[in-house]
């Protein structure tokens, strides 16, 4: 029991720290795509660790927390992908610090949705 409690506290602190870094990344990263890196990756692992920590301390909630984690893993990349696409579709907002841009060279403009 004491082991579960210690594991829960460690998971809570590491998850909280990663969630904090995601907020920091959103503020500090220089352009919108890099912000999206912080916003999708760090929040996913942060949520997994934080909710796992809550699950260690309150074992009866594990099924619901598992559903939340599953949902976050499934939906987070999708919203990140949608936002990344939206940036590409707005040329006036596109960051200009790219060292390599195959997407612009390919002349892809999106067009009709499949």
């Amino acid at each position: 029991m004491i082991f579960l409690s210690i594991a829960g506290h460690v998971l809570l602190v590491s998850g909280g720290f990663i969630l904090f870094t995601s907020g920091l990344g959103i503020l500090r990263m220089p352009d919108v795509w890099n912000r999206l890196h912080a916003g999708t990756k760090a929040t996913t692992l942060g949520s997994i660790l934080f909710l796992a920590g809550i699950g260690c301390l309150e074992p009866t909630w594990i099924p619901k927390l598992f559903l939340i984690v599953l949902f976050i893993i499934l939906t987070n990349p999708v919203s990140g992908h949608a936002l990344a696409r939206a940036v590409h579709m707005r040329p006036e907002e596109k960051p200009d610090n790219l060292l390599e841009d195959d997407l612009a060279e390919s002349g892809f403009e999106g067009g009709e949705e499949q």
């Binding site: 990663i18 220089p30 960051p95 060292l99 997407l103």
Partner: peptide
């Protein structure tokens, strides 16, 4: 990501 964010100057070299 964590290492990048915590550095004084965020090291990025973006490209597609």
């Amino acid at each position: 990501v964590l290492m990048r964010v915590l550095q004084p100057v965020v090291p990025v070299k973006p490209g597609i």
